[in-house]
Design a protein around this nucleic acid. Structure first.
Lengths: 175, 175
DNA sequence: GCCTATGTAAAATGATCGCTTTACACTGAA
DNA sequence: TTCAGTGTAAAGCGATCATTTTACATAGGC
């Protein structure tokens, strides 16, 4: 496996499992099996590594959420949580640990959330035939809620979110 | 103000603003205006301080969520977010930063979430006349979703969650 | 065969980590 | 008046922090 890929996926696991600040550079280098010099050549700094991890994760996440209906969206979320574990949104955790003070990281987070919102908006629009920002926002909230409830309730909550979404999609559509 | 109160409320602000791990003991002692010896006499360790902060915050939070209807619940949440800021659930952030590995902290988090869930269940039951665990879980998910969406969308999302909750409360009640 | 890329291991940087200890001052009750 | 309780300031604990540096190996293209 490519060094950069190995570094980033190792870092993603460690950050997700132990938190960003609590994960030191030595654990990252040892985990990836590379020297610190090589690490710094690849991502420049710890913040750079964090941003790279988030970018890569965001790409993978949105690829998995590339579905055609709201119902499938929640199925995909459940699959993701089962495969990756339920420790909450890594982007929001990064925001919390940095206080939103690192521009490079803050921008990555905001951009990811903007993309997710747009994706949900498109899925909703495809399903009901027109754009409905308000309905899409409610689905996003259920999505975000399911993600975070899963930390302490497991994937059981995703089924509830899915059910609630089904109601909203039925009741709220005007056409 | 009592030293212990000052310590805990200062720590709560610093942890919330900058994260738990990133906040060092010297910032905490300087913030509270006490010596490190005094701090350690009061809470024993940093983990002890974290647990104390979470306990205090949980008490204050649930006091503010002591309402009689689901609609009021979301109004109270909005008030909370405006007053306290929107940096996500401090309990889940603590979970993420510790990996759930510190028993003292993990137990505090789980207990708080259990209480919140029970509170919502009671509010729902009072409103529709009978207990409905599934409906309550959906409300909890909207609540959790609004809390976390607020990090990057502000309180606008709370209004959406409130609206969605109103739909669910209307559509799903069987009596 | 040499040059540049890219990697390693390991030491050193100064700062900061959580936590303990030492030495001293104030206060209220016995 | 003595004494336990509670506080301070400041030094020190060994460990770890993110980052840089030094010295050396290996490999592919010219």
């Amino acid at each position: 496996m490519d060094i950069r890929t190995r570094l980033i996926s190792t870092a993603e696991q460690l950050f997700d499992r132990h938190g960003f600040t609590a994960t030191g550079m030595d654990r990252l280098t040892k985990g990836a099996g590379i020297s610190s010099r090589t690490l710094y050549k690849h991502t420049g700094s710890k913040h750079g590594l964090m941003a790279a991890v988030l970018n890569e994760r965001g790409r993978r996440f949105l690829r998995q959420m590339d579905v055609d209906s709201v119902d499938e969206l929640f199925v995909s979320l459940e699959t993701w949580l089962v495969q990756e574990g339920s420790r909450g949104c890594l982007f929001l955790r990064a925001w919390g640990e940095t206080g939103g003070d690192i521009p490079e990281i803050a921008a990555t987070i905001m951009e990811h959330k903007r993309r997710l919102r747009e994706r949900v908006n498109e899925i909703v629009a495809a399903e009901i035939g027109y754009r409905d920002d308000e309905l899409a926002e409610e689905i996003v909230i259920l999505f975000e809620g399911a993600t975070h409830t899963a930390i302490y309730r497991g994937t059981a909550g995703v089924a509830s979110a899915r059910r609630a979404a089904r109601y909203l999609m039925t009741v709220e559509r005007k056409a």
